[in-house]
Simulated scan of single mutants.
Amino acid sequence: MALRTAGRQSLVDTVVDQLKAQLTNGEWAVDDRIPTEHELAEQLAVGRNTVREAVRVLVHAGLLESRQGNGTFVRSTADPSAVLQGIRAADALDVLELRVALEAEAARLAAERRDTADMVALRGALETLRAHGDRAADADMAFHLGVVQATHNPAFIEVYRFFSVQVHESLITSLRDQEMPPIDLDTHEGLVEAIESGDPAAAERAVRELLRKPLEAVRAVAARAKSGGRTPADRSAPQPKSEI
Rank of each mutant, 00 (worst) to 15 (best):
P214V: 00
G86E: 06
E216V: 04
R75V: 01
F143V: 05
F73V: 06
S10I: 01
K226R: 13
G190E: 15
D177G: 03
G26I: 03
I172T: 13
K226M: 12
F156S: 04
D115T: 05
V15W: 00
A2N: 12
T128H: 13
E42W: 01
R99N: 08
Q239L: 13
N25L: 10
N25P: 06
D186E: 11
E105F: 04
D138I: 13
E158C: 11
R114Q: 15
A45Q: 12
D234M: 14
G69C: 02
R235K: 09
V120M: 15
G198K: 02
R99D: 04
G229T: 00
E169R: 12
A136H: 06
L126S: 08
R130T: 04
D13V: 09
R230C: 11
R88P: 05
G7H: 04
F73Y: 11
V148E: 04
S81C: 06
R123E: 12
N25E: 08
L64Y: 01
I157E: 14
E103W: 02
E189Q: 15
E189H: 12
L122A: 01
M141F: 03
N70H: 11
G69Y: 01
L171F: 05
D184M: 05
A111C: 05
L122Q: 05
T50A: 06
V218H: 04
L210S: 00
V95H: 00
L185T: 10
R108K: 06
Q239E: 11
R161L: 14
V218N: 07
L210M: 07
V83W: 06
R113I: 00
V74D: 07
